[in-house]
């Protein structure tokens, strides 16, 4: 068990307002962690900082002991909460791209998964619904053998019947050598697979711990602990 993600006193402002304010956290290898907070409170910002899509104002971020850069990008698979393959015509074009530019992409796995959900790789993206596109995207990013998976709202666009498949796919990519951070405000569906939980409020960690320990301590579902924590918070709508 080593420290895969280490964040120390991270601050990031936007238009003069601090979105992340002295955030510190750490994630070990071999864990599925839930990053729980309402919308607009810094979850996506944190992921973007980990991916180098944003740079911090101050503080330290280390992934696998290294600073953010092309080496860390190589071991992180980031699933955004919107569809990124607009430029691509068919599923197989996206597969070719992933294969070409990500050395840890497992083509066999992606084909197995696509077969499970009955998606032919010749299907055009333009002929798919939003939920279907998100499913394919998830399958593509989870077919990378990455050390760290950052999943931004993986269940949001998918209907309840398909959520089990998503959860199983996540579990299938997960092992002792990697970690998954799932950022979501839909706690109910995902909580049973979480090892640990980190809740963000006012740009800092307000609650964190092992999922089962919290359940024991509070005698509640994580979803209910979440609701209690953010009860009077409307989610910072003004920050973007």
């Amino acid at each position: 068990m080593s420290e895969l993600v280490k964040i120390n006193n991270l601050t990031r402002s936007f238009h003069g307002r601090k979105v992340l304010d002295g955030l510190s956290l750490s994630v070990e290898t071999g864990k599925i962690v839930g990053l729980l907070a309402p919308n607009g409170t810094g979850k996506t910002t944190l992921f973007r900082l980990l991916m180098g899509l944003l740079t911090e104002d101050s503080g330290e971020i280390r992934v696998d002991g290294k600073p953010i850069g092309k080496e860390t990008n190589n071991v992180i698979s980031y699933l955004p909460d919107y569809f990124v393959f607009d430029d691509f015509r068919r599923i197989k074009n996206a597969i070719e791209y992933m294969k070409e530019y990500f050395s840890d992409f497992d083509e066999k796995r992606v084909k197995e998964l696509l077969e499970k959900i009955h998606f032919d790789e010749n299907r055009k993206f333009s002929a798919m619904s939003k939920g279907e596109k998100e499913q394919v995207q998830l399958v593509l990013f989870l077919s990378r053998r990455a050390k760290l998976y950052l999943l931004d709202e993986p269940l949001a666009a998918v209907d309840p019947a398909k959520r089990e498949f998503i959860i199983n796919t996540i579990l299938g990519s997960f092992g002792e050598e990697n970690s998954v951070i799932i950022s979501t405000h839909l706690v109910l569906d995902i909580e049973k697979i979480l090892d640990e939980v980190i809740m963000l409020k006012d740009g800092k960690v307000c609650l964190s711990g092992e999922a089962d320990v919290l359940r024991d301590e509070y005698g509640k579902k994580l979803n209910d602990i979440f609701k209690d924590t953010f009860r009077y918070e409307e989610g910072g709508k003004g920050n973007e």
């Binding site: 071999g30 579990l171 997960f174």
Partner: peptide, 14 residues
């Protein structure tokens, strides 16, 4: 077993 149960292997391990 974790796969059968649809749970996190860590939880199963525990």
């Amino acid at each position: 077993l974790a796969e059968q149960a649809g749970v996190n292997p860590n939880t199963m391990q525990r």
